[in-house]
């Protein structure tokens, strides 16, 4: 459904993406992860025909993003990071505007709007001005709008950015519901890694390159069991002792130590037994996509 080959984008002295390859299957829920500035938005902008690649090729639904932009645009729906609704129009007017831009007939548009507004729970608010909507309602409306013209692929660019956790969950409910209803391919970019856990496959991009690709389970399998975060009164000494005694590689991360070990909860008592340095806190985590990112880059995704 999406095919990217050797895609490169250069802005003056900066190479935003360096020859990436991707292949997204029809119906797949694909996550595109990476820290801010890693090249996620550049890639999306090329895929949705807003940006010309420096070299390489991007295809969506069998059409070339650069030479057949209209075909590609008809095949995709987009939800951008920033809100792109007209606040001076009502919810319904925003949607009908969209339908006409995509050349839908009036009757088809009205039926489709009714159907989708029901799913995102905004039918009762269809005649309210969008400026009176909360952030979560606007997002729901935008997701609904992105699906109106029955696209093959829905691009969600950081769809829950800036929303509170409750609203984020709620948005994901709607996305899940719409996905089941429409059977659509979804291309998600996010740096909330918990949101990507539900993807069929994820690609992790860092500094313009794809550094990992696979299902969340596969990526986590590559890790050595659980991650242990440790704070001590003397990190440097503690690092040396652990490495010596257990033969594990220990990393440092914002004022603490971190290492991977199998069976973390059985390991910690062994570690504490006769440990010469005061331990301030310990935290064991099952592997997450964040750990995948850390083990690949040595940084946390959120702070880099």
């Amino acid at each position: 459904m999406i095919k990217v080959e050797g895609l490169t984008k250069v802005y003056g002295p900066i190479t935003a993406i360096k020859g990436i390859d991707l292949d997204v299957e029809e119906g797949e829920f694909f996550g595109f992860l990476g820290p801010n500035g890693a090249g996620k938005t550049t890639t999306i902008n090329i895929l949705c025909t807003l940006l010309k690649p420096t070299s390489g090729r991007a295809m969506v639904n069998g059409f070339d993003c650069y030479t057949q932009p209209h075909r590609v645009r008809s095949s995709i729906g987009l939800v951008f990071q920033e809100y792109t609704l007209d606040n001076d129009l009502t919810a319904y007017e925003n949607l009908i505007f969209h339908c006409y831009l995509y050349n839908m007939s009036r009757r088809d548009a009205e039926r489709r709007i009714g159907e989708i507004l029901e799913v995102v729970d905004l039918w009762d608010r269809r005649d309210s001005l969008v400026k009176h909507f909360s952030g979560g309602m606007k997002r729901r409306l935008e997701i609904a709008r992105g699906l109106l013209h029955r696209p093959k692929v829905l691009f969600l660019d950081e769809p829950t950015l800036g929303l509170d956790p409750q609203t984020r969950l709620n948005i994901w409910d709607f996305i899940e519901r719409l996905r089941r209803m429409e059977g659509i391919t979804i291309f998600l970019t996010t740096h909330y890694l918990d949101e990507a856990e539900g993807c069929d496959r994820v690609a992790i991009i860092d500094r313009g390159e794809i550094i990992a690709l696979g299902s969340p389970e596969d990526l986590k399998k590559g890790l050595e069991g659980d991650t242990v975060y440790l704070r001590t009164s003397n990190d440097r000494e503690a690092k040396r002792i652990i490495e010596e005694r257990f033969g594990i590689e220990v990393g440092t991360i914002d004022g603490g130590l971190v290492f991977q070990v199998r069976g973390g909860e059985r390991f910690v008592p062994k570690l504490f037994n006769g440990f010469p340095i005061e331990i301030v806190s310990v935290n064991i985590k099952r592997p997450s996509l964040n750990d995948v990112f850390i083990s690949l880059t040595g940084r946390e995704i959120r702070e880099s």
Partner: peptide
């Protein structure tokens, strides 16, 4: 305010 993008990604010239 971002609304232009809604028009720029639509299949219109």
């Amino acid at each position: 305010f971002g609304f232009l993008r809604e028009m720029l990604v639509a299949p219109i010239s």
